[in-house]
Design a protein around this nucleic acid. Structure first.
Lengths: 239, 239
DNA sequence: GAGATTCTGTGTGCCCGCGGGCAGACCCCC
DNA sequence: GGGGGTCTGCCCGCGGGCACACAGAATCTC
């Protein structure tokens, strides 16, 4: 159970399976990658800034040094589906690596951020020099795939209250900070933002959230959610 | 526009972006990988056979030499969501590479198949020897991710007729054969199977299909779908 | 080739969840 | 510190799509 903050960084997390914990060699790679990203000055972004949006043609990967970024689908009708919210230490825009020219997601800043950018060609260069790095990227794709599969599964099989519970659990796992009253999500989030995450309308999200609050599972103030009873939230999410 | 059969093989397809078309080096890698898979005797599977199912613990990747395999989510309530249907030349089960011990998908044979199996450790061995191979795997994950993202987008934003049109287009792209009357899906498929692919109930899929037939966009017999007017089908799918 | 099984076609009731419409509360920024 | 804009709460009508229920047709099996 997560009580203190723990980012599930793709690059800094532990290596799975037979790779075991990071070896010296792997740590070297991580440093390498970090250096690669850090070579450029990190750029400062503000809440609401759009890093890229569907249709954009750019050729970079991004590394979040600080702040929060959301990745989302936009529908032509204006509806939105947020895939995930990323924090410190995470990489996005990796689709350029498999030859996507156009972005199909929106990448937007949710909390003021400093972000490093690296051109795909530079990244691939390094990948040629040090092909072991591709293992890292493989990791990245694999995890992202799992994340989306999970979301797909939820959307098809689960109703709104369940999806909401699961989403909040995910948020406090990835962005939770311990407080006196419970685990709080460490950035400001609106009901609309939550609704986009679970693929529902704002009104339904609000009322599902209110039910959870009424049951004493969480506290909420404007923009803030504090989970008081993680166990019961897990029950709600059908685990 | 696809008229003749074209499998979108992950391994044998063209390399994207700056990789350009397969170089001699890349072709060598592909041969290598193929050899790796072929070392074992291919195993023969029959329609309906389950290769693995959610919760199974096995440690292999699979290569489809011939036949069709579907990958699907199962809900505890018995509902099902089919992610994709794979054919000749494709690899699946790749999640073991990023340390998943348990399968979370069902892999089931749709059409009699010959499938090669390779243990993850053997695969990783080769990956250490020839880390360039990881680029291939990166590719694989990347494409699979895109595939799922597309499905997610459809499920949230599109209604059943649209999803059905899009799904049929995908099927004839990946499994289409040219016939006198039009492009036909080259394996037998039921309405239930189609419904699972687009995340809907069988009855609604049937009636949407019948509407398409009535409009002259496709012909259908039991188990068979023949697209007569690909252009109009594309319109229906909202492109 | 006859029976069993599976697949297809269609109709109906029902419910979840969307979307519109407001009112009121809270924030934030100037 | 006051006003405008955003966010939250709630109501309610409507509709897409699911579940159930059969009936008939095609296919498979022995």
């Amino acid at each position: 159970m997560s009580t203190t903050k723990m980012n599930r960084s793709y690059l800094y997390g532990s290596f799975p399976g037979s790779f075991g914990n990071p070896t010296a060699e792997e740590k070297r790679l991580i440093r390498e990658l970090k250096r690669l990203f850090a070579r450029r000055q990190g750029r400062r972004y503000h809440k609401g800034d759009v890093i890229y949006q569907p249709g954009d043609i750019d050729d970079s990967l991004y590394y979040i040094h600080s702040g929060k970024v959301k990745l989302a689908y936009l529908d032509e009708s204006g509806r939105k589906l947020t895939l995930t919210i990323l924090g410190e230490g995470e990489i996005f825009g990796e689709m350029v690596l498999i030859g996507r020219k156009e972005r199909d997601l929106l990448a937007q800043v949710l909390q003021d951020a400093v972000i490093y950018e690296i051109e795909r060609s530079r990244f691939l260069e390094l990948l040629r020099e040090k092909p072991e790095l591709a293992l890292e990227v493989m990791e990245l794709f694999g995890r992202r795939t799992q994340e989306i599969e999970r979301k797909l599964e939820d959307l098809v099989f689960k109703d709104i209250p369940t999806r909401l519970s699961r989403q909040i659990l995910k948020l406090i796992e990835e962005h939770g900070v311990e407080t006196r009253e419970g685990v709080q999500i460490d950035f400001k989030i609106t009901h609309k933002e939550l609704a986009d995450l679970i693929g529902s309308a704002r009104e339904n999200t609000t009322s599902a959230l209110n039910r959870l609050a009424k049951e004493g599972i969480l506290d909420k103030k404007r923009y803030r959610i504090i989970v008081k009873d993680e166990e019961r939230l897990k029950e709600k999410s059908g685990i």
